[in-house]
């Protein structure tokens, strides 16, 4: 009788332990997913901001039509990109076009004094940062998740329920790696 109670108790403890591990794995996996969607949110925000930027700058930068057209073209390309690879490349081109634009802005003191432009510049800088930080957060979450899958004893539960390691978000394109340098001086 006592033996039976001990066995049932042990089974109960082990079951609770496994449930706890399983739940924490699910939680981590959802965090990875959530971090991934953050990246998309920020990329979309950048697309939304660019028309305003072009509109504001157009009046001041009569001689830079090419630069502005490049940004618009890169934006529409990035928006229409389907696959992850295309998307990465297109976003990289967009980043390159933007950094060129912010270099050229230095020659237009009137534009730099415009309050609307300054506000937009802050928004864009912040969006670039948010893209970088959401990537960083995604990679952080991925690492916690992957560590959990590899480590004992959670690796047993992960194996039982078929949890797969998440992929890190690596930047392939060099232009993509170079976040446009925005100067506030």
């Amino acid at each position: 009788m006592i033996g039976a109670i001990i066995i049932v108790g042990l089974i109960f403890i082990v079951a609770m332990f496994l449930i706890g591990i399983y739940n924490s794995l699910i939680k981590l996996r959802n965090q990875v997913k959530n971090a991934w969607s953050q990246i998309d949110v920020q990329l979309k925000r950048r697309h939304d901001l660019i028309p305003n930027l072009v509109e504001t700058a157009k009046g001041y930068m009569k001689h830079e039509r090419q630069t502005l057209e490049n940004i618009t073209a890169a934006r529409s390309k990035a928006m229409s990109a389907e696959s992850v690879g295309d998307k990465g490349r297109a976003e990289g081109e967009l980043s390159a076009a933007m950094s060129k634009f912010f270099l050229v802005v230095e020659n237009y003191p009137d534009l730099k004094a415009n309050q609307n432009f300054l506000a937009l510049q802050e928004e864009l800088t912040s969006t670039e940062n948010k893209i970088a930080f959401s990537r960083q957060a995604y990679n952080d979450q991925t690492m916690f998740f992957n560590n959990k899958i590899e480590m004992f004893p959670s690796n047993i539960v992960a194996g039982m329920f078929g949890f797969k390691q998440a992929e890190f978000f690596e930047i392939e394109d060099k232009a993509e790696k170079a976040v446009p340098k925005v100067d506030f001086s």
């Binding site: 971090a35 912040s126 948010k130 930080f133 959401s134 960083q136 957060a137």
Partner: peptide, 12 residues
């Protein structure tokens, strides 16, 4: 505000 939001994103 932006800086706070950036850090909110970075720290999930």
């Amino acid at each position: 505000f932006n800086v706070v939001e950036e850090m909110k994103i970075a720290s999930s």
